[in-house]
Computed example of a mutant assay.
Amino acid sequence: MGEARQKAIKHQRIRDGEFPCVYCGGVVPGEEPDHMPPRILFRRKQRPNDLVFPSCSGCNRGSAAIDTIIAWLGRSYPDSLDKSEREEVKAISSSMITNYPEVASAFHIDPEPLPLSQAQMKTLRGMTTPVNVNDPYIHRCIDFFGAKFGLGMHWKLTGNCVPPEGRVYPQWFTNYHAVAGALPSDLFRVFPNPLPLVQGRLHTAGRFEHGSVRDGEYSSHLAIFGESFIVLAFVAPNGPELCFAESGALECEPGCLKAGYPYGLPRLSADELRQRFSRP
């Protein structure tokens, strides 16, 4: 049986409710196939048919916003030379402003210069002014995506859903952290060979790579989104872990995705959004 046929059968098994939802503790059937990362991250939504997880409708709908936001962030830098891809990114940006204006208005030029050497600045490929991502809406959405990623990848790695009492602790870093040497020092020792998704000639190298490791009942997961940002997720299936909580990482539990956008933060008023969009 061919690879494509095998995956099609798995998708149907998911739709038939044979697997639990991996995002809300395995307590309800997962009847909708969920692509990790989302198809919208890729040109013409073409990606290998891998990392597809069973999701209930509540988790799938609740995480639709972060899927779009992650795709927007992952495709916005560096600029594509392909006209059709630029048009796709433009359409995503328009959707962001309409549907998720708190996040779309979060980016503005920081008046303070980047504390980088000229050599470091060159590695940013023309990005001569810093984009401010120190915003609670950006942080919350990427954190919740990290939680979703960790919940799915833990199931992929261990065959078990993170139970309701389990916790996920996401962290993330931008290309600025990479250039400034501010990534965790042992990151690529723990994840030495991140892998792209591959299906025949179709692959995600340069756009998305991932890695997972297991330490007893715990698991850790890495996602690299091209030259834009990195997401880490640490999974503690037996309950809260003090060491992670003390690190400042957001503590997320199974089922958190059902909250939907903006994931526990308040929606902003029209006047508040107008002020944010009017910043330099």
Rank of each mutant, 00 (worst) to 15 (best):
C141Y: 03
F144N: 14
L116R: 00
G166L: 00
N132H: 14
P136L: 11
F149T: 09
P130G: 05
F149K: 03
R201H: 11
S185Q: 15
F145M: 10
P196E: 10
P194N: 12
P136Y: 09
C161N: 13
V179D: 00
K148V: 01
A119Y: 06
P115M: 09
G206K: 07
G159N: 09
S117M: 06
W155E: 02
G152F: 05
S117R: 09
C141F: 07
M153P: 02
A119P: 02
P184V: 10
M127N: 11
H154D: 07
N99M: 14
V190M: 08
F188T: 13
G181C: 12
R189C: 07
E112C: 09
N193W: 02
F173W: 13
P170L: 09
L183W: 02
D135Y: 05
K148H: 08
L116H: 01
P184H: 07
A180T: 10
V162E: 06
N134L: 14
L187P: 05
Q199T: 11
S105T: 07
R189E: 15
C141T: 15
M153Y: 07
V162F: 00
P164W: 08
V133L: 13
L114Y: 05
S95A: 14
L187H: 10
G200F: 11
T123S: 11
N134F: 10
I109Y: 05
F107M: 05
H108Q: 13
Q120W: 05
G126H: 06
P192Q: 03
V168S: 02
K156A: 12
F144S: 08
A205C: 05
L124D: 00
R140L: 08
Y169W: 02
P130D: 07
L114F: 05
K156C: 04
L183N: 03
F144I: 15
G146F: 02
F145R: 01
P184W: 11
L183C: 10
G206V: 06
G150Y: 01
L187T: 10
D110F: 05
G146K: 01
L151W: 03
M127C: 12
P113I: 03
L151K: 04
P115G: 10
L187Q: 11
G206H: 09
I138T: 15
G152Q: 06
I97T: 14
L202I: 14
L116T: 01
N134M: 13
Q120S: 03
L202Y: 05
G152D: 04
P101Y: 00
T204H: 04
L197F: 03
M96I: 12
F149M: 15
M153N: 10
G146S: 11
A180Y: 04
G150C: 06
G159W: 05
